[in-house]
Design a protein around this nucleic acid. Structure first.
Lengths: 349, 349
DNA sequence: GTTGGCACTCGAAGTGATAGAGTGCTAATT
DNA sequence: AATTAGCACTCTATCACTTCGAGTGCCAAC
């Protein structure tokens, strides 16, 4: 494995490359760090690190840059954790709790804060609601032929939709249907609710089936639309100022991919399944080629989860260059996550 | 003023520059168009057009490019309108009406379509709701201390919010308050609703003022938040492939400005006030320096309005380079606008 | 295992030289 | 008076060429 000095060398290379974005050579390594050996020795070490696939040369006569594997090694065992200043902490706190009236405001604030602090792209996914259960369902007539369906879920999420109903349904009938459906579905999780459970919830109302079909279908759709994952991406343009994207075509690929919210959301929620529960692994770090989205080969993902109402969790994180101050960013994400969790708790209980 | 040939020359210059993005010279002008005069004559004409400020030279020995004033002249009186193919029309139609369940889906679809067709950035603003009036207001208890407020406006817009209420308020009391507020405010426009009108709506209920204050305030906030303008921007990354933004710094400025949704929304809704009602001016075109947003000096705005429920109007349009196929884009926007209006009508009535 | 030394490599940056597209002006032509 | 041909001039883009410097690998010596 890596002896102590090689570790130091790799660490120094990553640190230097992160801060300068220039390939780092043996000589400048000596200059910037207090190695007690000569540059020739470092050259030997670097040759070995290269053989191990941890660093690489952009071309023959250049310095070295970390490979994906090198970053991985760095992240897993070399970096030192960063500590946020009290000032930073109170700034984050203040920004997240600024003028919120809903959980989504908090999530959005958290993502905005993260993007501004790191200078990278932040992303946030609303929680998967499949496990939340229905607490209330109200239908009310707006005008003949139109009704409003309001669905309230266990974690305080509300969804509404205006739906068409048969013209001749009366206020009273709507009220009956509404109550019946609510009684039938209350306490069921979104997972469990299907067209069949919806239909069976009204089987002993005196309203003819022919009238019910349409409205039950609409109720079902309204409930199901609550399950949609929303994704929020912020700060895409900040990536343009990074040297890795000075070639327009790279930047284009990247922003093109990020523009497809759905794709990013899908990827991140997929990722969500890889959290290793056993070692309470709070972060998921994906580096370079480990990311299977096109155009993100030069990027790293760092995501974590936040909690809503105990049972539900959403994702929040950042997308930045591989060449990232991992320790700083992680500590920022960590604090944002904690603050977000606290604030959500405050808001919902 | 401009004699006929000078008009042709200006038109040809704009057309050529739009399609090639290269300064156009007298010789290539002759080659590409059927002028019955020599290049020397065109040179004289071009010198005059330049004196009039309609075209300009990037440097001494280059061809000419249209100035903002030149584009303006072109747009106002030179360009020929484009006609969409039936294919295009039915594509647009299909995309806009694809899987919609709400007005906002339509608006979003319309903006997405516009961006994809033009290859530029599209933007859409939800209508200003200030003139819409309240048709229903329901409050319902979710659990002790928490209630759901649902506001329905005349055009079928629904807003909801979970609010805190005093713990000991009963279901029955909420119901009374809800009804009283609804009775008091129904039919009032958002403009007219203030904390005072909200408060006076409940003056003859038997519930003590001290309990009412908080919940009335929350109701008021819920109503007012319905008035927020939402802006939707799509396709920012597409601008990166345009030659005018091959210098990264320009692209950065542009995307940086566009990232501030609020700023763009503010600008567009300001613009909205300049539609000239007298000549049923359906489009608003702003070219280059006419735009007062930073970083958009090389861009043009084309916006138009769409209609919701007869009285309300929102904005939709595109942001592209000054060097834009105006006639094509305008005819696309025109058709999108018409289709959007139709579909909204279908959906809401 | 470490070090100094050296030949070698390769990209970045600078320097002319050249070609080409364009202009403005003048004098001749219609 | 408008148009045209011709010509000298200007400016950029590009290509080949050179130089410079940071970095490497390797070898012989410590």
């Amino acid at each position: 494995m890596l002896d102590a000095r090689k570790k130091q060398v790799l660490q120094a290379i990553v640190d230097d490359y992160v801060s300068t974005s220039e390939p780092v050579g043996s000589k400048s390594l000596i200059e910037r760090h207090n190695f007690s050996v000569s540059s020739a020795t470092l050259r030997n070490d670097m040759a070995e690190l290269e053989k191990m696939g941890l660093i690489e040369k952009p071309h023959t006569s250049a310095g070295r840059i970390p490979s994906d594997k090198g970053y991985r090694e760095y992240v897993n065992s070399l970096m030192r954790m960063d500590v946020l200043t009290e000032q930073d902490k109170s700034d984050i706190q203040a920004r997240i709790s600024d003028s919120v009236s809903q959980v989504t405001d908090l999530i959005r604030n958290a993502a905005d804060t993260l993007s501004d602090m790191t200078g990278y792209v932040s992303l946030a996914l609303t929680p998967k609601l499949a496990k939340s259960y229905l607490t209330q369902l109200k239908m009310m007539m707006i005008e003949p032929g139109k009704a409003l369906v309001v669905v309230v879920l266990s974690v305080g999420v509300v969804k509404d939709k205006i739906v068409r109903i048969p013209n001749f349904l009366t206020n009273e009938q709507i009220y009956q249907i509404s109550n019946a459906v609510e009684r039938g579905l209350c306490g069921k999780s979104l997972d469990e609710i299907t067209l069949i459970t919806v239909a069976s919830s009204v089987k002993d109302t005196p309203i003819p089936d022919s009238l019910l079909n349409q409205i039950l279908y609409e109720a079902y759709v309204t409930i199901k639309q609550a399950d949609k994952l929303d994704v929020y991406l912020e700060g895409e343009h900040k990536l343009l100022s990074l040297p890795e994207f000075k070639e327009l075509s790279r930047a284009q690929d990247l922003l093109g991919t990020l523009a497809d919210d759905g794709m990013v959301a899908g990827y991140v929620s997929e990722l969500g399944n890889s959290y290793d529960e056993t070692k309470d692994d709070k972060y998921l770090i994906r580096i370079g080629q480990e990311i299977t989205l096109e155009g993100l080969e030069e990027c790293s993902f760092i995501t974590t989860t936040y909690n809503v109402g105990g049972v539900l969790s959403g994702n929040i994180g950042i997308i930045g260059p591989k060449r990232m101050e991992y320790s700083k960013v992680i500590s920022q994400i960590d604090f944002v996550r904690m603050t977000l969790n606290d604030e959500i708790k405050k808001l919902t209980e």
